[in-house]
Design a protein around this nucleic acid. Structure first.
Lengths: 187, 187
DNA sequence: GATGCTATTGCAACACGTTGCATCTGACAC
DNA sequence: GTGTCAGATGCAACGTGTTGCAATAGCATC
């Protein structure tokens, strides 16, 4: 009932990041020159300070992990994030990671949803806001693209003015293949 | 961030069920005369035995709780179910309840979904299959009725043949009232 | 009613995530 | 450079749910 664990294709890559990333020196994340506006976290340290929050080594570690993930699927569970942080800093504490994720969500750097199994899934921004489809047959997962999302959101918003948080949407069911091979699973 | 705990309006009522419900005698659930087809669990003992499964006191306790809930909202968390079972039988063990719920889900007696906070929510059947809307502002919850559901399901099924499991669908967002009072929460 | 098989239970340990609290430290003021 | 203080960390305990395993007990059979 569990066990459909996504592989970690970039796991090794984390340890091969540009030199200096894991040292105590200021990393590229401290670069607030304005030339790195391509990433939403380029000016994160100053954004934190502007809110009276702080830029700590633990937060830098998590941000480095998230930067790598933004280049891949952009979807990870809390446990995966902790493991990846531990690869960079073995002293990483789970509660610190989860608390930092809360802060980053406030800042719009990440969003979280709950997968079909109830576990948290984090999405690294920037990405088009999207929901997810999870097949309970083959454990596959797909994104709900903008077109489908529009119809879906309109269906709910139109009738009662409910504003859907698309990034938190996980739809369970059977994909076309699984539905075909077991046509009467849910009569 | 948590704490929007639904009250348990029927908690006391559980202990006031019809006489015989909590005794060791065969309850109404053992009645397979065919005259109680109104409830899907009237013949549960024999349905279990037909599958090589067993009818135990622990399962009877849970079924009695579910029978009460079917008359109310039909939505409960795992913890609430355990508490209600303990009201009938203080020796109730959580793992037994969860395992029994798995069995009952296989039999179609209950369905489960995950709320916006990731916790499990169980729905007692029979009920029209429906999804849920959760407002992250006021913590309110509403059901997605058949009309909305049809449009929504069609939006997903139409484009790629994905068969939506509506009863597992929880949509987070802001209700009309909350959306109005905080118009720019998610720009 | 007695017997045997095996589904089920109770328990303990585990997994993921949250929370309370004492301690530490980033960052601002001087 | 030093002092100050609120935000952040580390740790332990907790909450909800799952899993492995030995012991128990339904229930089919005789």
């Amino acid at each position: 009932m569990r066990g459909a664990r996504a592989e970690l294709p970039a796991a090794a890559a984390i340890l091969e990041q540009p030199a200096g990333a894991a040292t105590g020196e200021p990393s590229t994340f401290d670069d607030v020159s304005g030339e790195r506006e391509a990433t939403p976290w380029a000016d994160l340290p100053s954004r934190l300070r502007a809110r009276g929050l702080r830029w700590t080594p633990q937060r830098r570690t998590l941000l480095e992990v998230l930067e790598v993930l933004a280049g891949t699927t952009g979807h990870v569970t809390g446990v995966e994030l902790i493991e990846r942080c531990r690869a960079l800093d073995p002293t990483t504490i789970p509660s610190t990671v989860y608390r930092t994720l809360d802060v980053l969500e406030d800042l719009g750097i990440v969003r979280h949803a709950h997968g079909v199994d109830g576990r948290e899934e984090f999405h690294v921004l920037p990405a088009i806001e999207h929901g997810h489809l999870h097949c309970t047959g083959c454990q596959g997962a797909w994104e709900i693209g903008p077109d489908e999302a529009r119809t879906l959101v309109a269906a709910i918003e139109g009738s009662r003015g409910f504003r859907v948080d698309l990034s938190h949407l996980s739809v369970a069911g059977l994909c076309a293949d699984c539905a075909t091979s077991s046509p009467e699973v849910r009569p």
